[in-house]
Amino acid sequence: MSGPLTLTVNGCMYQVDAAPTTPLLDILRNHLGLTGSRYGCGLEQCGACMVLVDGVTAYSCSREAGTLEGRSVTTVEGLGSPEALHPLQKAFLDEQAGQCGYCLSGMLIAAKALLDRNPAPTRADVATALDPNLCRCGTHPRILRAVLRAAADMRSRADS
Rank of each mutant, 00 (worst) to 15 (best):
R117T: 15
L114F: 08
L79Y: 00
I109E: 09
E83I: 00
G80L: 11
K112C: 08
D94H: 10
A111R: 01
C103P: 09
C61Y: 10
G98A: 15
S62I: 15
L85D: 03
E69F: 10
F92R: 02
G66S: 02
T75R: 14
A65L: 09
L85M: 09
T74C: 06
C100R: 02
S60L: 11
Q96T: 13
Q99V: 04
M107W: 10
P82H: 02
H86C: 07
G66Q: 00
P82T: 08
N118Q: 15
G106M: 07
E83T: 11
S105W: 09
G78F: 02
S81H: 03
Y59R: 15
T67M: 14
L114E: 05
L88F: 04
G80K: 14
Q89S: 07
A65P: 06
E95C: 15
N118C: 13
P87I: 00
L115E: 13
Y102E: 03
P82V: 12
G106S: 06
L108G: 03
Q96D: 14
V76T: 04
C100F: 12
S81W: 03
V76P: 01
H86L: 05
A110D: 03
S62Y: 05
S62G: 09
G78D: 04
H86Q: 06
E64F: 15
L79N: 05
D116Q: 12
C103I: 00
L93D: 08
G80N: 14
V76W: 00
N118A: 14
L68E: 09
R63Q: 15
A120W: 01
N118P: 08
D116T: 11
A91V: 09
A84D: 14
L108Y: 01
Q99N: 04
L85F: 03
L85C: 01
D94T: 12
T74R: 14
K112I: 04
C103N: 05
P119Y: 11
